[in-house]
Simulated scan of single mutants.
Amino acid sequence: MNKIFLKDIHTLSVAKLASVLQGTIEGATEIRGLAIFQAIPSIGAQTAKNMLDRATFR
């Protein structure tokens, strides 16, 4: 079993994160996006989610 630390999620590739979590690429992309925003000290979990919900990735 692979172990990852919460503080390191933003550094993982989406493919690696999906593999470790045994989830989808889409889910891993959202989790990684949230983690990247949360790596900024002044942005909390809810603000990061709000920003991702409003972003367009197409």
Rank of each mutant, 00 (worst) to 15 (best):
Q38K: 13
F57Q: 04
F57S: 01
T56K: 09
K49E: 12
A55N: 01
K49T: 09
M51F: 12
S42F: 08
L52K: 01
S13P: 07
N2V: 14
S19Y: 04
S42W: 05
L34K: 00
I25N: 05
I31E: 13
T47Y: 07
K49G: 03
P41C: 02
R58Y: 12
N2T: 15
D53C: 07
V20Y: 08
I25V: 13
N2Y: 04
K3R: 14
G33L: 09
E30G: 06
N50F: 09
E30M: 14
P41M: 06
R54E: 15
I25L: 09
K16G: 09
T47M: 13
A35G: 00
I31T: 05
L6C: 06
G27Q: 13
H10T: 06
L6D: 11
Q46W: 14
I9N: 06
Q22T: 08
A48Y: 01
N50K: 00
T56V: 10
T24Q: 07
N2G: 13
A28G: 00
K7T: 14
I31Y: 04
A45Y: 10
A55F: 01
A28H: 05
A39P: 07
L17G: 06
R54L: 11
K3S: 05
T47P: 01
M1T: 07
M1V: 08
K49F: 07
M51P: 01
I31C: 11
G23C: 08
N2L: 05
R32S: 06
N50I: 10
F37K: 00
T24W: 02
S13Y: 05
T24I: 04
L12W: 01
A18L: 00
I31M: 10
T29E: 01
G44T: 03
K3H: 15
T47I: 15
R32V: 03
L17H: 07
D8H: 01
E30P: 03
T24R: 01
N50S: 07
F37P: 06
G23S: 10
A28W: 00
I40A: 13
F5V: 11
Q46D: 15
G23T: 12
K16M: 10
M1I: 10
L52V: 05
K7F: 11
G27C: 12
G23W: 10
L52P: 04
L34M: 02
L12S: 02
L21Q: 07
